[in-house]
């Protein structure tokens, strides 16, 4: 009996080992492939902003900038909306509305990135462009809105990212809110709290997990590729302007990987991938840690 159980454990464990080793293999493989670039440029790779494959000059600062800028902007837009949805579904809405709303947010998450991108090119970008044109000149003078009204650029990318991030953040935030004991809300109500004040108490109780939910959305935004690639304008520059076409780490890999003729170029792109891998690893790890501390291990599972 015992020995057969061990056989069972070993055989299923072997598959589990495959799963775990894939993550290690990704890290190893990306490091190996990017060694050339790491050795040649060192830390300068991340501090310089000249991206000139022809001259063999590779500085990835614009991509880091574009990735962080677009993701943080998206987060600023998406977080209040996502928490609002989570609160509405878990605390406010009539029970019959709950399932349909959950389904719709799931659908929002399930629509392929490429479809968002297609919609972005043909619907969102023209709309953003007319918005940019309609902006009064006095505002256009600000660095935030400088540059020609192209439509493609940071604003379009951030908007589309926000749409894509909302369902992730709201789903996790909803799960986290569900783990708040009813007693917390009751305690607030019993002291004469309004509905808002009682929900605020619940959100406060769940704050760690909600920060985790927001970070999970951040992780998604950082790695999002197709939709962003199609609307951000793909121009490697460090600009504060919302209207400026910029570039992200994921987008440059998507666009230039097959064109990378020489080894250094390829290594530079893989290095960007490696850093993207590490950043998302850290962000997701932190976010899961927060969600787990909040909800205990059982509910943390829902956040996967």
């Amino acid at each position: 009996m015992r020995s057969r159980d061990i056989g069972f454990r070993l055989s299923t464990g072997a598959f589990a080992f495959v799963l775990a080793s894939i993550v290690v293999a990704i890290g190893f493989e990306l490091s190996r492939q990017s060694m050339l670039s790491i050795q040649k440029f060192g830390f300068d790779f991340w501090r310089t902003s000249t991206w000139d494959p022809v001259a063999g000059q590779f500085g990835a600062l614009p991509f880091i900038w574009g990735t962080l800028y677009s993701s943080i902007l998206a987060l600023l837009i998406a977080t209040p909306v996502a928490i609002g949805i989570a609160v509405f579904i878990s605390e406010l809405c009539p029970r019959i509305l709950r399932t349909p709303l959950v389904f719709l947010t799931e659908l929002l998450a399930a629509i392929p990135s490429i479809v968002y991108g297609l919609w972005g090119i043909f619907v969102l970008v023209p709309a953003v462009r007319s918005l940019e044109i309609a902006l009064p000149d006095s505002l256009r003078a600000l660095p935030l809105f400088s540059g020609p009204p192209l439509g493609v650029g940071m604003l379009s990318a951030a908007l589309i990212l926000a749409v894509m991030v909302v369902p992730f953040t709201s789903t996790v935030a909803r799960e986290v809110l569900r783990t708040v004991p009813l007693a917390q809300r009751e305690a607030a109500y019993a002291l004469g709290a309004t509905q808002f004040e009682a929900i605020r108490a619940a959100i406060f109780y769940a704050r760690t997990g909600i920060v985790g939910a927001v970070m999970l959305g951040f992780g998604r935004a950082l790695g999002e590729t197709m939709a962003v690639t199609m609307v951000i304008g793909n121009n490697p520059q460090v600009s504060a302007s919302l209207f400026a076409p910029q570039y992200t780490m994921a987008a440059v890999i998507a666009n230039e990987f097959t064109e990378a003729a020489d080894e250094l170029y390829l290594a530079a792109l893989v290095e960007i991938g490696l850093v993207l891998f590490i950043i998302t690893l850290v962000v997701n790890g932190l976010s899961r840690g927060l969600i787990w501390t909040m909800a205990g291990r059982k509910s943390g599972r829902a956040a996967a």
Binding site: A25, L30, L216, L222, G223, I253, F257, V270, F277, T280
Partner: peptide
Amino acid sequence: GVPSIVIGVF
């Protein structure tokens, strides 16, 4: 949570 593009690179 690994971005799909990174998996592509791998």
